[in-house]
Amino acid sequence: MARSSSKDAQDLFRALWSAYAATPTNLKIIDLYVMFAVFTALIQVVYIALVGSFPFNSFLSGVLSCVGTAVLAVCLRIQVNKENKEFKDLAPERAFADFVLCNLVLHLVIMNFLG
């Protein structure tokens, strides 16, 4: 049972990897960007667990900036994904402009909240 499930898992990961390898490069870049943001967020969570929550607003803004970046990047990824039928009439340029606007607002707020 255990072996079969681990074999299944291996199969699964192989299938996942091959399926993922087929995604276009620009989506992969976005994925990398998301991974970077999530990783930074995790580091901060570990850090706050170590040193305590004194400058809580800084922690919040730090983590939320990462989470926000990740979420917005995911949104962008959804919109520029050619396979996604829902957004066929949404031009990638428009999607990217929205993304930039959203990020500007996000970072403005973060700057306000950081200090």
Partner: peptide, 22 residues
């Protein structure tokens, strides 16, 4: 569920929470 729902909801929570804390 649709990806539109994700776009409508996830940024709202993150940005909304940040803005509300302001």
């Amino acid at each position: 569920y649709s990806s539109r729902l994700y776009i409508a909801y996830a940024p709202l929570v993150v940005l909304g929470t940040l803005l509300a804390s302001l």
